[in-house]
Nucleic acid binder design. Structure first.
Length: 871
DNA sequence: TGCCTCACG
DNA sequence: ACGTACGTGAGGCAA
């Protein structure tokens, strides 16, 4: 029979964490994780934990935490723990990570509403003794817990930080104070406790308290005899504070029978989860621990066995739980060729570079970057049906801070994988390596994907993001793949025509500018332009950049009245921009099929929006007529179809109305009011909409934008060209009239401070490591982000849901109409003429019903023979 | 490669 | 006092 001794270790997590924080407080700036999080308390807590685990060798462990500010003790005595200094932000931000560390260590932690960690510990210690445990060890930074010492229960109290412990047994307590554990509680009742704000009896401290207890046995004994005591100030105090003394006793007594919902068997210590622990150490920047750990655990990604397939693979080589991955050298999967592929699990990995074998693949359900793989396979004429897991998307949902390369993800979870740059080279030197190197790298990628899936899935589950992956990002990837493959027809002829006109204009403007400047120079060079305007011509330099004079639009616009050259330069800039980015740029992206196939980057933005690259089709000009003409080149596939553009009206403000619950904003949207006019009326105290001037509305619109962005007086004043003081007044009035918007903003920031992140309606997260930064501007930025991200992100989520639903609805209705583009709050479709009225209704309905909010969603639609006409 | 500028939501 | 509006991509310049 093996040793069956049961040995329980109970740790007072809240008190130890607090001690740990101050133990390394002087070195706080040395303990910073890569994310910016302070780690001094985490580090010291970890050290203490390792020491104690080593010393006690427990079979069961539990770390108890205080649940919150109010407990049953505050019900008894409102001032319990009152007057305590607010815990520093640098400390609070570490608490969730201490818990994460415990989870990685395989240690249960627990808290209970209305009770303190002491009570959980006392209750479990009592239960353990009754259940026949051989030994219980309690660790705390609070000497009050010594009242739990019994023959079987030892209490360890930290001294000097958290490195050394003082061991309390009944014998030691007796030796040290001459008291029993019962008497120790009475002592506290007499003395009180400054840190917990327990009053005790006036003027009685440790010495007098002990003397009295030794003489009368107990608190009750003292009061039984108080009348017989000879007259003294102390006697008077005892009598006066009698009630207070007994209340103090109750407050100081640990509850040994608190209603915990955790059993002793749940405290069983199973040892650390090395994968989690490695990922945790990495996240915290605990390099030394990481090295120690890697000494004892294998680096699985290092040792790879794989089979190179040269013949048609057989069906028994596939099953759903494997990962599949296709490799290209760059990012451009619309043009680059497949250089190899691999699939497998933790037992067997297959690799090949023979693309003719792809037709025989039966696809596993896991991959990395489904959209890319789907597009690459579509180019081979192969359909890749939707998978159930995509590591790239999962990682993006878990954290947007790092990039989502396989090597980065491997690294994040403690595995080592060579970066693509290292294997394939970069820039001009990038090339397909020799087979052995390529196959090895591909096999390692599969191994890394297999290894990191479980911890990633765990993270998503912890963060309540499983549905966000399975119901939004994954199906969206499928929809986006189809849109990218479809592409949009762009007329090179129309672009070239615009280009020729632009060249004439640019030529004429260039001549006029040289004439006015008195010399030729490169107008596109801000540096040369600065010299001409601010040195040669002596115009006032309003703004500076890091490298010299600013020549940005807002600066030039202020100078326009002073020199005719300025307007010419502005016009030159405008047309040059159109020419280089939109005429030349887009012409270079039209592929052999006469279409542009953009790539939607699904794993990049901090808020959950998509981005569009190569080319960017989300910033095609629309505001100014000269640029807007570019849209005449964007065409439907056939002459008998049109482009339909459907966009949400004010989706971000509607989301804000919903999230904040502000009754005024909600009712304005419910009434279908013009929202900026309505804001103007409320903020400027105007009774009738017709009395709102264009200027009032413009100002109100700027305020509404500001609110969504995380308003500041400076930003608003800049935007509106008014004084900071005036902007401040606007904001103050706005907050008075929309109090729930103010509450939303404050709550967002507060919650970000407590948890380190904010989230959207669909649990998309943005971590904000800078929210407690000491640097004002760094912290302010994080605060504005805390306000903006849930709004922008929820709006992005909603359009994603709409796109997924629309894709389904179009299929179900057997329509030929196809989604082509997404521009943040807009979807562009190619619709055959005969389907137009039905599809137009379907798109509107689908978008407006994507989610039910406290306000209606409204979609505006336009169609035409070009994108220009569909606006 | 970093900076400036400017296109979009 | 601090020094900002939120989120992107691309072209041209200057090192």
């Amino acid at each position: 029979m093996t040793n069956t001794e049961k040995n329980l270790l109970l740790i007072d997590g809240s008190s130890i964490a607090f001690r740990a924080f101050f133990a390394l407080y002087t070195q706080i700036d040395r303990f910073v994780a890569p994310s910016g999080l302070h780690t001094n308390a985490i580090f010291a807590f970890h050290t203490m934990l390792r020491n104690v685990l080593d010393k006690v060798q427990p079979t069961h462990v539990l770390v108890a935490f205080d649940a919150g500010k109010t407990t049953f003790r505050t019900e008894m005595f409102a001032d319990y723990k009152a007057g305590r200094a607010k815990t520093p932000d640098e400390f609070r931000e570490q608490m969730p990570f201490i818990k994460e560390m415990l989870e990685a260590q395989g240690i249960t932690h627990y808290d209970l509403t209305n009770f303190e960690a002491d009570d959980i510990i006392g209750t479990l210690a009592t239960q353990a003794e009754k259940a026949g445990f051989d030994k219980v060890t309690v660790v705390s930074g609070d000497r009050d817990l010594t009242q739990l010492t019994t023959e079987k229960t030892t209490v360890e109290i930290t001294i000097k930080g958290v490195a050394e412990l003082e061991t309390y047994t009944p014998a030691y307590l007796n030796e040290k104070l001459g008291l029993t554990t019962e008497q120790f509680i009475d002592l506290k009742a007499l003395m009180g406790d400054k840190s917990d704000n327990i009053p005790g009896v006036t003027k009685i401290g440790e010495k007098t308290g002990i003397k009295l207890l030794l003489e009368y046995g107990s608190l009750a004994g003292i009061y039984d005899h108080v009348d017989q005591m000879k007259t003294s100030k102390m006697k008077e105090n005892l009598i006066n504070d009698r009630e207070q003394a007994f209340l103090s006793r109750e407050l100081a007594t640990i509850d040994l029978d608190s209603p915990i919902k955790i059993g002793l068997d749940e405290t069983l210590y199973q040892g650390a989860d090395y994968d989690k622990l490695k990922a945790f150490y990495k996240e915290m920047g605990f390099h030394k621990f990481l090295e120690d750990l890697e000494g004892v655990t294998e680096k699985v990604v290092e040792v790879i066995e794989f089979t190179v397939i040269t013949d048609k693979p057989s069906p028994d080589m596939f099953h759903e739980d494997q990962f599949f991955y296709l490799e290209i050298l760059g990012d451009d999967y619309h043009r680059d060729e497949i250089i190899g592929f691999a699939w497998g699990d933790d037992k067997q990995i297959y690799v090949s570079k023979d693309t003719s074998l792809l037709a025989a693949i039966s696809f596993p359900k896991n991959t990395f970057d489904f959209k890319k793989n789907k597009v690459l396979l579509a180019r081979q004429g192969i359909d890749y049906p939707l998978v159930s897991f995509d590591t790239m998307l999962a990682k993006y949902l878990y954290s947007t801070i790092e990039n989502n390369k396989i090597s980065t993800i491997a690294d994040l979870f403690g595995y080592d994988l060579a970066d693509d740059e290292l294997v394939y080279g970069k820039g001009a030197k990038r090339a397909v390596p020799e087979d052995a190197v390529l196959f090895d790298h591909l096999a390692r990628k599969i191994a890394a994907l297999v290894k990191t899936k479980t911890p990633l899935v765990d993270k998503l589950r912890e963060n309540d993001q499983e549905k966000l992956l399975s119901d939004i990002e994954l199906p969206l990837a499928n929809v986006l793949a189809k849109m990218e493959i479809t592409g949009i027809k762009v007329s090179g002829g129309v672009l070239s025509e615009i280009g020729l006109e632009n060249e004439q204009v640019i030529k004429a403007l260039t001549a006029e500018i040289y004439e006015l400047a008195g010399e030729p120079f490169n107008i596109n060079s801000p540096k040369q332009l600065g010299v001409i305007l601010f040195e040669k011509m002596g115009l006032p330099a309003i703004k500076k950049t890091k490298t010299g004079y600013s020549t940005a639009v807002d600066v030039l616009e202020q100078l326009a009245a002073q020199a005719p050259i300025v307007d010419k330069i502005l016009k030159f800039r405008q047309i040059s921009k159109i020419q280089s980015t939109y005429v030349t740029g887009l012409l270079g992206e039209i592929m052999a099929d006469g279409k542009i196939h953009t790539r939607y980057v699904q794993d990049l933005t901090q808020t959950g929006r998509l981005s569009s690259v190569q080319p960017n089709l989300q910033n095609i000009p629309v505001r100014l007529p000269e640029g807007r003409k570019i849209r005449k080149a964007f065409l439907p596939e056939n002459t008998d179809s049109v482009l339909l553009s459907s966009d949400y009206s004010q989706i971000e403000l509607r989301v804000l109305a919903h999230i904040s619950g502000d009754e005024h904003l909600i009712s304005a949207f419910q009434k279908g009011a013009d929202i900026h006019t309505s804001t103007a009326m409320r903020v400027f105290g105007i009774d009738k909409p017709e009395d709102v001037t264009a200027n009032d509305r413009r100002n109100a619109k700027a305020v509404n934008f500001g609110v969504v962005y995380g308003i500041s007086d400076f930003g608003l004043s800049n935007n509106l060209g008014i004084s900071r003081k005036a902007a401040k007044t606007y904001i103050e009035t706005y907050f008075e009239r929309y109090p729930d918007i103010k509450n939303y903003m404050e709550n967002s920031v507060r919650s970000a401070r407590d948890t380190g992140f904010v989230e959207t309606l669909y649990h998309r997260r943005r971590n904000l490591p800078d929210i407690n930064a000491r640097n004002f501007s760094v912290r302010s930025f994080a605060e504005r982000t805390a306000i903006n991200s849930p709004i922008q992100g929820s709006a992005a989520d909603i359009l994603k849901v709409a796109m997924i639903n629309l894709d389904k609805a179009l299929q179900a209705g057997n329509y030929q109409a196809k989604m082509l583009l997404q521009v943040h709050d807009e979807i562009v479709l190619d619709v055959p003429n005969e389907e137009l009225s039905a599809v137009q209704a379907l798109v509107k309905l689908t978008m407006e019903d994507a989610i039910t909010l406290a306000v209606p969603l409204l979609v505006d639609e336009n169609s035409g023979k070009t994108w220009y006409e569909a606006k």
